[in-house]
């Protein structure tokens, strides 16, 4: 029978299969290939984070310099700096408004697009395109649109409402809302896409059942669909939240933190302390505070995820 391998070939390979390979070298190629990932996870994500946290307790102004342990001094200084307090206040306002508006706008638009309309693709393309742009581009466009001399304010005034005033970029009281408009414009399309995917994931028979039962559409959304989309909402929430903390380029482009320090945000504070003010310790302390605020959102999320998978 010619279709049977020769004895010599078999003898040749005899000893290789019988020997138990050394554990570390099994699958060696895969381990080597995964080195960049392991490096990123251990050295960058864990190592660098711990390094920053450690140095936030020292009195480093410029590295390399002898580190002097100062305990919580940097944090005390941080929380008594007006600029930081303004940053935090802005982050809270911007964050709360972005969360609520993104979820409401995102879900509403997704629900409208899910009504089996014509031209769904066109509407989706229009609503999502700002998300493809750089925050710098977004910030500069809205800086121009909100320009008091030529922008919205002057247009409304020229239409007859001469006392109309909307000049957020030069008014410290409301400047953060000017940034908010730009932020929502750019980001809400993304939330809409997530929501739309969630809506499409819902069993179409639910709609048939609701129709047979004679439940109006809005009631179906509120009492049936939204509760079913809880995981989607949580995901969207985490996405929005992690975007909020990163807000930096938008502010740099739109207002440069001004007028004065009225539109400062934490991410900008950190970068400036580290790379302009040469006050590293402050930068480290401020960035550690940013990490803490992320953990406040993330830990319940991890807990939910792990709890969910354990039940599943």
């Amino acid at each position: 029978m010619s279709l049977i391998s020769t004895e010599t070939e078999a003898m040749h390979r005899q000893d290789r299969g019988a020997k138990k390979p050394i554990r570390l070298f099994r699958n060696l190629n895969a381990k080597v290939a995964a080195l960049p990932m392991i490096f990123t996870a251990l050295v960058i994500f864990i190592g660098c984070t711990l390094w920053t946290i450690y140095h936030s307790f020292t009195k480093s102004r410029l590295l390399p310099a002898p580190e002097k342990w100062v305990g919580l001094d940097q944090y005390e200084r941080l929380w008594s700096t007006r600029r930081w307090l303004v940053s935090i206040e802005n982050l809270v306002i911007y964050g709360a408004c972005t969360l609520v508006l993104s979820l409401v706008i995102g879900f509403t638009l997704a629900a409208l697009l899910d009504r089996k309309i014509r031209g769904e693709n066109i509407f989706r393309t229009i609503i999502l395109y700002p998300f493809a742009l750089s925050f710098i581009v977004t910030g500069l466009v809205w800086q121009w649109i909100l320009n008091p001399e030529f922008g919205i304010q002057s247009i409304v005034q020229s239409l007859g409402w001469e006392r109309f005033a909307f000049d957020p970029l030069n008014n410290g009281q409301i400047v953060i809302y000017g940034i908010l408009i730009a932020g929502i414009w750019q980001g809400s399309g993304f939330i809409m896409v997530i929501m739309l995917a969630g809506l499409r994931g819902i069993d179409q028979e639910i709609w048939k059942a609701a129709r047979v039962d004679g439940i109006p559409a809005w009631k179906t959304y509120i009492f049936i669909v939204i509760p079913m989309m809880k995981p989607v909402f949580i995901t969207a929430l985490v996405m929005i939240a992690s975007g909020i903390i990163k807000v930096y380029d938008l502010v740099v482009a739109q207002t440069s933190g001004g007028p004065g320090i009225a539109s400062e945000v934490p991410a900008k504070y950190v970068i400036e302390k580290m790379f302009e003010a040469q006050n590293l310790g402050q930068g480290f302390a401020a960035s550690t505070m940013m990490l803490v605020s992320v953990l406040v959102v993330l830990i319940p999320y991890i807990y939910l995820q792990l709890g969910g998978s354990r039940r599943g």
Partner: peptide, 22 residues
């Protein structure tokens, strides 16, 4: 390692930026 990688994506860049400079 993969889990660390995924959750690492949520760490603000500002936390890691300076050590990477070094």
């Amino acid at each position: 390692f993969f889990t660390i990688l995924i959750f690492g994506a949520f760490i603000p860049y500002q936390v890691m930026i300076y050590p990477i400079v070094i």
